[in-house]
Amino acid sequence: MNVPTMAEMAAQGKQPEVLFWVGCAGSFDDRAKKITKAFVKILNKANVEFAVLGTEESCSGDPAKRAGNEFLFQMQAMTNIEVLNAYEVKKIVTACPHCFNTLKNEYPQLGGNYEVVHHTELLKSLIDDGRLTIEGGQFKGKKITFHDPCYLGRANDVYEAPRALIQKLDVELVEMKRCKTNGLCCGAGGAQMFKEPEKGTKDINVERTEEAIDVKPDIIATGCPFCNTMMTDGVKAKNKETDVEVLDIAELIANAKDL
């Protein structure tokens, strides 16, 4: 696996095609690290010149902002923007919809202007440009349902790129009752990931997982490390680990290509 950092690139006087913003989950969470690696393998395979910030990356500030701590958010944002601008970054890709939304929508007001894409969008454009090819292979005939991450879908209107990628795998894409603009949250957003839920009758991730299980998929696909955790926990809560797998789109593609 080849993972150059911006610092190394800069030392060689090179500017990568795109900066891969890994995010906190992608860097530290054991489950999410697998997604990060799957994505990197695809980038390597497609010969995309990318780089990461490595230890120069810091939390985008999303959970702080959604929790109401504008101070902390802006401190994070301005520190990150300083680093990004120093490297003259133009284009950023990330596998986390929360980072995606924050870099794309919240940073410009603080002086950070970049072209920001979600990894599903980048993967789709690699295929469209012929730089990456995928065939169904091992997923052929499987039933996959896609859970829309709120910060990818409703927040930024990206619904088609992940679906287009799934369809390239020769699988049957089945939609849940609440999908796309009507998609139901997994329960992690708005800093909920970091706290116990308020008193209620049910956990949101269980409600969502039940809906997914209703369409009898072999795989629940998603495009967010937090959704991934929530849905995985939901599947466990329903004792369905043997029947249903929760995978990121990047993992689906990396697996299909045997990377």
Partner: peptide, 9 residues
């Protein structure tokens, strides 16, 4: 207000 996931639904 702490129960909100900011999901925009």
């Amino acid at each position: 207000i702490w129960a909100c996931t900011s999901c925009n639904a």
